[in-house]
């Protein structure tokens, strides 16, 4: 598979993974220092999925994300500076400080947003899918969700409707093994991908720590969707390195994840694995690697600085954003 992908794209995947990790690591740091408010769900350890999946999309495709969505946003090319600005609650953020981490979106790019309600995006993704179908465009929708969402009613209703209407949607489950504290093996013992059978659509299971493998299945699902053949369910197996949210005590003491298990998964670091592979193939050199990392370091630093120095939104302006057609009365 690797040999079929242009070198430039492989390097972009690698860079994307590194950018996601750097972004998330910085978020953890800023939150721990009390510099950014809010609730944070980080995707460290899961970077291969957005890196592989987002690069398999075309310009104009729709993307629906979830509460652990920073990686998808970076994957499709949102600017770190405006993302950080949103996390700092500033007017210059993607959502002008109205949304925060769980609602990051960029409608100019058809990024329909993260979502704070688990599974809700699955139903919404069908809407952009139907919209593209009725408007007769070739746009597809990719919908990311976690293993927890696959236990929600919206998953079953959403996949069934997408299958019946042959909607151009890719449902990509990032199975990071835990829905907060509840293990995926208990919540979905048959495996998420297996459920595709029940809706009569293809279900594929893929190594979610391998960006090339993810890229491959998403590309295949995208082709199918673009040809009007309907949705695909992909289950990408991965692991969440951090707690469910920044502040989850399981991060520091064993509550629901055995430490042995965490250590096993740390060995499967998607970034290190991919780095080794690229070095071995001669696509990456230590010099290039250093340069990429240096650039990202600068990007993160500059972005945070810009975000932090950006103005806060004016509370008196909030009344304009609830409705498109009217202002709300502020008393």
């Amino acid at each position: 598979m690797v040999s079929l992908i242009p070198k430039k794209l492989l390097l972009k995947m690698y860079t994307t993974m590194l950018r996601i990790r750097s972004f998330e690591t910085k978020v953890a740091e800023l939150f721990a220092e009390g510099k950014i408010p809010g609730l944070y769900h980080l995707s460290i350890g899961q970077e291969a999925i957005p890196a592989g999946a987002c690069l398999a999309l075309e310009k104009g495709d729709y993307l629906v994300s979830h509460h652990r969505g920073h990686g998808h946003m970076i994957g499709v090319g949102l600017q770190m500076s405006k993302m950080f600005a949103e996390l700092f609650g500033r007017e210059t953020g993607y959502n002008r400080g109205r949304g925060g981490s769980m609602h990051l979106a960029d409608f100019d790019r058809n990024i329909l947003g993260a979502n704070g309600i688990v599974g809700a995006g699955i139903a919404i993704a069908n809407g952009s899918g139907l919209s593209a179908k009725l408007r007769k465009t070739k746009q597809i929708t990719i919908c990311f969700f976690g293993d927890g969402a696959s236990q929600e009613g919206s998953f079953h209703e959403g996949l069934n409707l997408a299958a019946i209407w042959k909607l151009p949607v890719i449902f990509l489950c990032e199975n990071n093994q835990y829905a907060f504290s509840y293990p995926s093996r208990l919540g979905c013992p048959v495996g998420v991908a297996t459920r595709a059978m029940a809706y009569g659509i293809p279900g594929m299971k893929v190594d979610g720590n391998d960006p090339v493998a993810v890229y491959g299945v998403v590309k295949k699902a995208a082709n199918r969707a673009r040809k009007g053949e309907g949705p695909t369910l992909i289950e990408a197996i991965t692991y969440r390195w951090r707690g469910h949210w920044e502040g989850d005590p399981d991060q520091h003491e064993e509550i629901y994840r055995p430490r042995q298990e965490i250590n096993e998964w740390l060995k499967k670091d998607p970034i290190l694995r991919f780095r080794e592979k690229l070095l071995r193939l001669g696509i990456l050199t230590e010099t290039i690697d250093k340069r990429i990392k240096k650039n990202i370091e600068t990007e993160v630093e500059k972005s945070v600085k810009w975000a932090e120095s950006s103005p806060y939104p004016d509370p008196k302006e909030m009344d304009k954003d609830v409705f498109a057609t009217m202002r709300v009365i502020l008393e």
């Binding site: 139903a123 919404i124 069908n126 139907l130 019946i164």
Partner: peptide
């Protein structure tokens, strides 16, 4: 295409409507 019978899935109906409304319909 414009008069769509749906399965008994209220969440799917409304979610689909929200997504469609966000994308030009």
């Amino acid at each position: 295409e414009r008069v769509r019978d749906t399965p008994l899935s209220e969440t799917a109906i409304l979610g689909c409507a929200v997504g469609a409304a966000m994308t030009g319909l």
